[in-house]
């Protein structure tokens, strides 16, 4: 292990511990206690919250903004791929050239998506007004992480820079909006709970005879 590995290991520990605090707090506080009589079922609604309700056809935030939506999806896939590569790079597992070039190509696309989202945030007044420095910094760190992942796969001289950037990202994660990676799942859960309890999700279809089915 080189010095930069130790720095990254420390950062990973801090990130993990901080994230665990967030996660354990969510678990400790638990699910809502609702005294009203339920009109529907929670589990199918939570499932729907993570599946059908995320369908771009159902969400204006997706179908009214298709370029941003798809850029966002690719950008997140690029992030997940970069996280996976982080562990593979660290473990020094040999990868076939074709796989490396495929990954780098995808990361180049996802990096472009990240830059595109950043440019949109800078250019659109409404979005600029909504943004704070964290919005830009979070994007830069994650987009830079994707770029550095691609570079280090092709050029191992970039190892120190790659691990330093990874460390910064890990340290910044729990302090910033990046922690939505934890809260996103809780938000979808709570939404599923709310709409399921009230019998709104999953949607029901009106039948001709006046009844309705799930």
């Amino acid at each position: 292990m080189y010095w930069y590995h130790w720095i990254t290991l420390g950062s990973l520990g801090i990130c993990f511990a901080n994230s665990l605090v967030h996660f354990l707090r969510l678990i400790r506080l638990g699910k809502p206690m609702d005294y009203s009589s339920p009109a529907g079922k929670i589990i199918p609604s939570i499932q729907y919250s993570f599946t059908g309700a995320m369908n771009p056809v159902k969400k204006e935030s997706a179908f009214l903004h298709l370029p941003t939506y798809f850029a966002g999806i690719i950008y997140h896939l690029g992030t997940f791929l970069s996280i996976l590569m982080f562990f593979l790079i660290w473990s020094d597992l040999p990868l076939q050239d074709i796989l490396i070039y495929s990954i780098v190509s995808f990361l180049l696309i996802s990096f472009s998506c990240g830059i595109g989202i950043l440019i949109k945030r800078l250019l659109k007044k409404g979005l600029r007004d909504l943004s704070n420095p964290d919005d830009y910094l979070s994007n830069l760190l994650v987009t830079g992480f994707q770029l550095m992942t691609g570079i280090v796969l092709l050029w191992n001289q970039a190892y120190p820079a790659y691990f330093i950037l990874s460390s910064l990202l890990l340290l910044y994660f729990p302090l910033s909006k990046l922690k939505h990676a934890i809260y996103f799942f809780a938000a979808r859960y709570h939404l599923g709970f709310f709409f399921g309890w009230r019998g709104i999700w999953p949607p029901k279809k009106l039948e001709r005879n006046g009844g309705w089915e799930n």
Binding site: M33, G72, L130, H180, A187
Partner: peptide, 20 residues
């Protein structure tokens, strides 16, 4: 009383796609 409030307070990423 539960995790609902801190969840939603920590979730918005300022994408602004809710405007429309």
């Amino acid at each position: 009383s539960d995790s609902k409030l801190i969840t939603h307070l920590n979730s918005c990423v300022h994408c602004g796609l809710c405007a429309e």
